[in-house]
Amino acid sequence: MAADAKRIELAAGSKLVARYLLLALVAAIVLFPVYAAVMVAQKSLTELGSLDVLVPDRIDLGSVPTALGEARMGRYLVNSAVVSVAIVIGQVVTSVLAGYALAFLDFTGRRALLAAVAASLIIPFEVTVVVNFETVQQLGGVDTYWALVLPFVAFPLGIFLMRQAFLGIPRDLLDAAVVDGYGHLGILRSVALPLVRSTVAALSLFSFLLAWNQYLWPLLVTNRDDRRTVQIGLKQLTGAVGPDLGVIMTATLLATIPILVLLVVFERQLIRGLTAGSVKG
């Protein structure tokens, strides 16, 4: 190891090569489970465990229609998409508005409200789930889309994230907008929001992921099959020893696709958010 390190120090070029080798290694480690899942989706149970399972000797998309049709993954995917998008929109709207208010507006009880939001951060979902379920039951929310969405439209972490992002905007820009004749809504729309776009993108992606991966809540508030979401569908496919592993893996991969798509779409925003950092003019 020491000798290797020395050699890397000697030439900047080999240092770069080493760095990319390391990156390639990390990428391979990260991507391996995905590759394995794709391959397993093609194989039977008895082929598992042997390394042959990883050889891409055949590509069989036969289990895709099964997963979408028989296993009803199609319907579940649509439901999950509708619910997740609604949750993302709700969370972004409430986080942006509340974050702005907590960052800039001077009103009685602001500190108390901020403390309340902070406190709710440490309350686990498991504690609120019973009360939420009770409320939704009494409002007649079982088997409705709004019941899947409503408990999640306010997101303390999102509020905090947006508040921090807004506080990062140079004070002068906001003062300038005030002098230029803008009220709070105008400032929010024309100045503040465009400047925290990368945070909004990160928040959207994060909240989509959380919403998409939900299992317990959708299971609680739905009984009808046509209201159920993708994670329940996956659970329904899994038996004690598992039926057709190919269908399970295919379904799992199908459930992962929307997240991959979103990552690619938001990639630029996210990277800009990570690298730019400063909004100074």
Partner: peptide
């Protein structure tokens, strides 16, 4: 009134044209 800030407080996401015209929009 109009104000010129020490940091200039230009809106980084807008073109110069939009920056200059910005105070006219609320009117």
């Amino acid at each position: 009134i109009a104000m010129v800030f020490q940091s200039y407080a230009l809106y980084p996401h807008m073109s110069i044209r939009r920056n200059i015209g910005f105070p006219l929009k609320p009117r």
